[in-house]
């Protein structure tokens, strides 16, 4: 095991590092396959059967089917690959980002229009009393 990285102290953020990339390799390769329309259609027609083509963990498959975005980040998915799942559902990056925050779509969009999320309170887990 590597020692705890400094970036693990950033709250609400999952840095896609070498260890997560390792864990998420087949999950991300599945997501990459959604670049092709024929694959998107096959996936949507029978999600679990399509997912069995990729040697990922059953936890990863379940999180895909539940569109459980934050769990997918924890299991090694990277946001740009996860976005392909959102696009396959007809959603946008912003839709996925809003879901990850737990805010409503409208609430998130309004926060952005008002200038975005402030760094205040979001600088460090230590500051927030997490971990």
């Amino acid at each position: 095991m590597t020692k705890k990285e400094a970036y693990e102290d950033i709250p609400g953020t999952v840095v896609f590092d070498a260890q997560r990339a390792r864990k998420g390799y087949f999950l991300n390769q599945f997501l990459y396959s959604l670049m092709q329309d024929v694959n998107r259609k096959e996936f949507l027609a029978d999600e679990h059967t399509y997912l069995l083509k990729f040697p990922m963990t059953e936890d990863q498959r379940t999180a895909v089917m539940k569109r459980d975005w934050n769990t997918l980040l924890d299991l090694g998915g990277v946001s740009y690959a996860l976005a392909k799942l959102a696009f396959t559902d007809g959603h946008s990056y912003q839709f996925m980002a809003a879901e990850m925050t737990g805010m409503t779509q409208e609430g998130y969009a309004n926060m952005m229009i008002a200038g975005g999320r402030s760094l205040d309170g979001w600088r460090s887990k230590a500051e927030r009393g997490e971990n």
Binding site: I10, G12, Y108
Partner: peptide, 15 residues
């Protein structure tokens, strides 16, 4: 420029 599109902290902007 500043942006975060993932995780609970998504939407961060630092002007």
């Amino acid at each position: 420029m500043s942006h975060q599109i993932q995780g609970p902290r998504a939407g961060l902007v630092n002007k």
